[in-house]
Design a protein around this nucleic acid. Structure first.
Lengths: 212, 212
DNA sequence: CTTTCTCTGTAGTAATCACTACAGAGACGC
DNA sequence: GCGTCTCTGTAGTGATTACTACAGAGAAAG
């Protein structure tokens, strides 16, 4: 991977880039996106600003990359949305959403930063916003595919899409709530949500079969 | 109210304060909290920075006041949560939540600014965050009281509180979603949500009556 | 008139921001 | 050796930030 085999305290691009990304993510979590200044990232990573700008074109590109890598890491720790191995949709969602919301307690950086760039409408965050929207779409597609697979091939596609939107909406709302109550119990709201989810799925499926 | 009756283009404190608040709210909506600089507020309000700092101690206090006044205005336009006039809880929630989510399309300033100061952890937003948390608690109490009144005096209090939390969580998630899809239909998700809400209320009420 | 109070206009402050110019270090290919 | 490429260190840039010092305008009170 690295274009040069490193031995000592010698400059290594890949390692430095990782250190910059880690420092940026850490600072954005602690102080928010606005508080994570280039100077602060430089200080925490131990690398000068010139190194940051050698690896990234600007601050926007840096945090777009932070969002992408943080999402990739989160994907690795969370059970796959790809293949349902549980008996029912409810159980499958319970295990997967349970693991997801539990990791939400640690508030993955991509989600918090992404919501910040969404709310803080500003052109200087264009790349970061684009990265987060891509991730959001990807996640929605994953959930949609999972639900459709569980509901059967003849299930309504818009139903699965709406339920996926529901999951994402609720998750993002939960993230805001977790900022208010540090000691919230994700399992409690997961139970409530799953009950609602079942109800929405069954009633919508019925009305869909009635309609067509 | 005003300590001095004004006639022409003469300095008037109350009027100027309103202009500053309006400009600050407008700019925070357009450019985000960070983009709403004192210089920008000064320019849009037509008043110098010294006037802003005469009315408000600092930027934090200004936006704390913006949050409070915006919330008060929103409370005036939205039907009361105080007295349920509909036959069922479902219908009451439908009319009230419907009106509320419809006003969410215009994204009340207090909600967007409040979520920004929640996510952007920074001490410089301490007053604004405090103001928003107070508003959040007040709203939760209003919804809780409404639900309890509708469910009857012997209803479980934690049930009503959880349902209120549910409403707020979902609303805040919807606000994020509305930033992604500008042309979202609030009524559509309201329908889904109300179905879920009913399910949660009924199942929780049953389990509560079983438990005690 | 003089005094007093509220608010505004002018002109700044130091600090911090993202970002850059540029030389050079250190490992490689030849 | 010599050039080349990647990355770092130093030292800065101008712009913008929140915020302020201070005089004075203008109306009311005496």
């Amino acid at each position: 991977m690295s274009p040069r085999a490193q031995t000592g305290g010698v400059p290594d691009g890949a390692r430095s880039k990782d250190k910059i990304l880690a420092a940026a993510a850490q600072l954005a979590k602690e102080r928010g996106l606005h508080g994570a200044t280039i100077a602060a990232v430089s200080q925490r990573s131990g690398l000068p600003a010139s190194s940051i700008y050698w690896h990234f074109s600007d601050k926007d590109a840096l945090f777009a990359e932070v969002i992408r890598t943080s999402f990739a890491q989160w994907l690795g720790t969370v059970p796959q949305w790809t293949a349902p191995d549980a008996a029912t949709l409810h159980e499958g969602l319970q295990s997967i959403l349970g693991a997801s919301t539990r990791t939400l307690r640690d508030v993955p950086d991509f989600l918090r930063i992404g919501m910040q760039v969404l709310l803080d409408q500003h052109d200087e965050h264009a790349s970061a916003r684009e990265a987060f929207l891509a991730i959001r779409s990807q996640t929605a597609a994953m959930i949609t595919a999972y639900v459709r697979q569980a509901l059967g091939p003849d299930s309504d596609r818009t139903l699965a899409e709406d339920l996926a939107t529901l999951v994402i909406t609720f998750s993002e709302g939960l993230l805001v709530g977790s900022q208010v109550y540090a000691d919230w119990d994700p399992d409690e709201y997961l139970e409530v949500f799953l009950g609602m989810f079942d109800h929405a799925a069954s009633s919508r499926a019925q009305s869909a079969s009635r309609a067509g």
